[in-house]
Amino acid sequence: MSAKRSAAVVLAVHLLLSLGLTGVAHADDPVDAGPVQQTPLGPITAMDKDLLVKVRLAGLWEMPMGEEAQTRAASQRVKEVGAQLASDHAFLDQRVLRLADQMGVELPDEPNADQQSWMAEMRSATGAAFDDSFANRLRAAHGSIFPVIAQVRAMTRNEAIRQFAQVGNNIVLKHMTLLESTNLVTAEVGLAKPVAAGAAPDAASANPVRAAQVVPTGGPNMMTVLLICAVGAAVTIGLLRVLRPKGSVK
């Protein structure tokens, strides 16, 4: 191979690698789960403990609101969904309290400020207004914790936490489906990032379809992929022409 042809090959490979690596250099970087703490049930991280806290907090407001749906809701479906959510969270609450006690993890005894604001909003309403608030606030909250549970399930090294996360993952997915079955969940509130009652979701949260199109800076976007494909095709054709033996049939 001549020096000219060698240079062409090196240049093409360099160009493809430069494009291909753009935006993906950190895609496989591990997520820091926090310092490890030894417990009678094995090691746990800050991420593991955060899951226990979040599940406890969810139960502290979803159980009472599910029960209150029996008297405040207008829709029979909302009443049924509320009863199921209250029952499932009572089950989860028993498990999280037991796990936290065995692992020495401190849990909250009351809902956080945002959750208290949602409870106040629902308690100020009855009938259709309650139904709408219940379905959307709870769907947003479940959508927020769902990826947290999945990440812990994938990363934890503690078998007890993994089993708990698996159960929690199944229940949260079930609850999102139940809440959506009320036909009251809207993109602007129920599918958006949870916000305090009375506050408006930000622009990205209010438009989940558009937000889903935003690609994190750590990974490649569609334009990069298309550009790589186009350049790759052009370089391949060019190399075939350069490296084609003289006298070959055109």
Rank of each mutant, 00 (worst) to 15 (best):
L11H: 12
L11A: 14
V13W: 01
L15Y: 03
L16C: 00
G20S: 02
L21Y: 02
V24K: 05
A25V: 06
A25G: 03
H26F: 14
P30H: 07
V31S: 14
V31I: 12
A33S: 13
G34A: 06
Q37K: 15
L41G: 01
L41C: 01
G42S: 02
I44Q: 00
D48I: 02
D48T: 03
D50W: 00
D50K: 05
L52Q: 05
V55T: 09
L57S: 04
A58L: 13
G59S: 02
M63T: 11
P64F: 05
M65S: 11
G66P: 14
E68I: 10
E68C: 11
A69Q: 12
Q70L: 14
T71K: 10
T71P: 06
A74F: 07
Q76C: 09
R77S: 14
R77M: 12
V78K: 13
K79A: 10
E80C: 06
E80G: 08
V81W: 12
A83K: 14
A83G: 14
S87L: 15
F91E: 10
L92C: 09
D93N: 12
D93A: 14
V96I: 11
V96L: 02
L97I: 13
R98E: 09
Q102P: 07
E106I: 08
P108D: 00
P108F: 05
P108Q: 00
P108M: 07
E110K: 15
P111L: 07
P111A: 13
P111C: 07
A113L: 01
D114S: 05
Q115C: 03
Q116W: 05
W118D: 00
M119R: 06
M119H: 03
R123E: 11
R123S: 06
T126G: 11
T126D: 08
G127S: 04
A128G: 08
A128M: 02
D132K: 09
S133Q: 15
R137W: 00
A141F: 01
H142P: 05
Q151W: 06
